[in-house]
């Protein structure tokens, strides 16, 4: 009798167990299908449908920090995508704008979003908007104006504004000692690749993220290429002044002793002489950096 009851209950357990397993498996399977089917528009636009920060701040009652943290977690997912569209970045920007309304003291959100929008997303205006908003609420954090300086200098090609923000940064507590000098170089030698290189190196030291650092290394290589191109073009001018004609190739500069050697191209291409105009181009560099071209008046000609 007892045994029978035992087997019965074992069978019962097995039956219930397998029923639950089947239902659970089916539910998980359907979830996999559903999330796949969820329209991309909906997935990406989740951030876009965030309510205005001023309303949200009231709606989350006292839990402002945790609400801001949760939105930040969502936004970070979008910032971290390797292939993000401009639209995606704009939604993430909107999310950070909202969350910093909810929690205006969230300094790391301003910093990280500001850097990503500037360095990666090619959205310097949005980056500056966030960073300056951060500066209004957190006037003591020197990194915020420092990154604004980057945006102005490198993305918007405005060394004067860049220097202004670097000077603001340099007066804040904890700012590194090199900042005042860097700001001065920025204004006096606007367009000097060496100043740009120094700025990028300082920024590189500030950032921890490996992928952001990779992007900066790329930028530095571009600046070095620009510097080399200028050096070679200067050599071409000297050649022309001495011999009254353009050299046939860059190697002529070395053989005639005008320069010691042709520098190695950091981007993996080679430097070439455009014989018709006497200018030098690099096969690795897609386009010459505007920031230097705009302010080259002082030294190239």
């Amino acid at each position: 009798m007892k045994l029978k009851a035992g087997t019965e209950s074992v069978a019962g357990w097995l039956l219930t167990g397998s029923l639950l397993l089947v239902l659970g498996g089916a539910a998980a399977g359907t979830l996999a299908v559903v999330e796949h089917q969820r329209p991309a528009m909906v997935r990406a636009a989740e951030l876009a449908f965030l309510p205005k920060g001023e309303y949200l701040r009231v709606a989350v009652l006292g839990y402002r920090q945790i609400a801001a943290d949760l939105i930040w977690l969502k936004a970070v997912q979008h910032f971290g995508e390797r292939k993000q569209t401009t639209e995606g970045y704009l939604w993430a920007y909107h999310a950070v704008d909202v969350l910093t309304d909810v929690d205006p003291k969230f300094t790391s959100a301003y910093q990280a979003a500001g850097v990503v929008l500037g360095v990666w997303a090619n959205l310097p205006e949005e980056s500056i908007a966030l960073l300056t908003k951060g500066m209004r609420h957190n006037p003591d954090v020197w990194q915020l104006p420092f990154y604004v300086g980057y945006d102005y200098f490198y993305e918007l090609h405005d060394p004067v504004q860049a220097a202004k923000y670097l000077r603001i940064a340099s007066e804040l507590p904890g700012a590194p000692a090199y900042l005042p000098k860097l700001a001065a170089r920025m204004t006096v030698e606007a367009g000097d690749p060496d100043a740009a290189l120094e700025f990028l190196q300082r920024l590189y030291q500030q950032l921890q993220d490996e992928r952001l650092r990779e992007s900066l290394v790329q930028r530095m290589k571009e600046v070095i290429a620009e510097r080399d191109i200028r050096f070679l073009e200067e050599g071409v001018r000297r050649y022309k002044a001495r011999y009254g004609k353009l050299p046939a190739s860059l190697n002529d500069l070395v053989t005639k002793g005008i320069i010691q050697q042709i520098p190695e191209e950091p981007l993996g291409g080679v430097y070439e002489l455009k014989a018709s105009e006497g200018t030098v181009a690099s096969t690795g560099l897609r386009q010459r950096l505007r920031v230097h071209r705009h302010y080259t008046g002082g030294f190239s000609r």
Binding site: A27, T30, L31, V34, P39
Partner: peptide, 14 residues
Amino acid sequence: ASVPLSYQAWASAY
């Protein structure tokens, strides 16, 4: 902005 019916069906099934 509506969602496709298939999505609605799958989500409801889930």
